[in-house]
């Protein structure tokens, strides 16, 4: 499974990448905001998108909305991993069609659980 990790902080990308590798997902690619992520998504046959919300350039929410509006990408499962924890924001992300939402700081177990849940639901 090919996964794109989008976060403006390289340390967070490295942490997520390492956690994913431990979960058996070794095919990961990184991008530092929505603007760099979009062309990669359009050309890369990704199976899963993990994105932060607050990033310079294009935010994770805008990336999510663009993905959902794109005929080719609209079915792509998206997991948001972000420090934004306001009720309104979570509702906004849900309405925009996010598949999972993790608030930072998070644990390896949470990441595992959410990813499993997303694929469980997609395969149901």
């Amino acid at each position: 499974m090919k996964i794109l990790i989008v976060d403006d902080f390289s340390t967070m990308r490295r942490i997520i990448k390492n956690l994913l590798r431990d979960l058996g997902f070794t095919n990961t690619t990184e991008a530092d905001d929505g603007n760099t992520a979009l062309p990669m998504l359009r050309n890369g046959n990704f199976d899963f998108l993990i994105t932060d919300w607050n990033m310079p350039g294009m935010s994770g929410l805008d990336l999510l909305k663009t993905v959902r509006a794109d005929a080719k990408l609209c079915k792509l499962p998206v997991l948001m991993v972000t420090a934004e924890s306001k009720k309104e924001q979570i509702i906004e992300a849900a309405q925009a069609g996010v598949n999972g939402y993790i608030v930072k700081p998070f644990t390896a177990a949470t990441l595992k659980e959410k990813i499993e849940k997303i694929f469980e639901r997609l395969n149901a």
Binding site: S85, K86, K87, I90, I91, Y101, I102, V103
Partner: peptide, 13 residues
């Protein structure tokens, strides 16, 4: 604005 303090609260919402 109401802020949720844990992943559990986010999951509940």
């Amino acid at each position: 604005k109401a802020s949720l303090s844990s992943q559990d609260e986010v999951d509940d919402l």
